[in-house]
Amino acid sequence: MDTQVNNQIKNNDIGIKLVSIISDALRIAKENILPDTRIITDLNAESLDVLDIRFSIEQEFGFKIGEHEIFDAIGDGMSPAEFSELFTVSYLTEFVDKKIQSLTADQ
């Protein structure tokens, strides 16, 4: 376990909230959800879990996420398998962080 990165998450409000959301959605203990944990590959998230997580993020942070927005944000032309490899907790944290920043900038 990468203690340095884990501390970054612990010190990061968004990260803490996301770990909690993922833990609820997958009924997995929070200590097993680390920054480099891959949500689909390592935690066995199903498509319905991704829907669940997306909805909980929307409710928690108060913005809507488009149907393919998370997928598209990683890059065009990627296969679902490639996406699963890259879809980590820290990636999701960064996605939410950027989303909040862009919404704040819009205001």
Binding site: L48, L51, D52
Partner: peptide
């Protein structure tokens, strides 16, 4: 669409 949990229909 916006507010109900998306897994509800299942």
């Amino acid at each position: 669409m916006q507010n109900l949990h998306p897994l509800t229909p299942l």
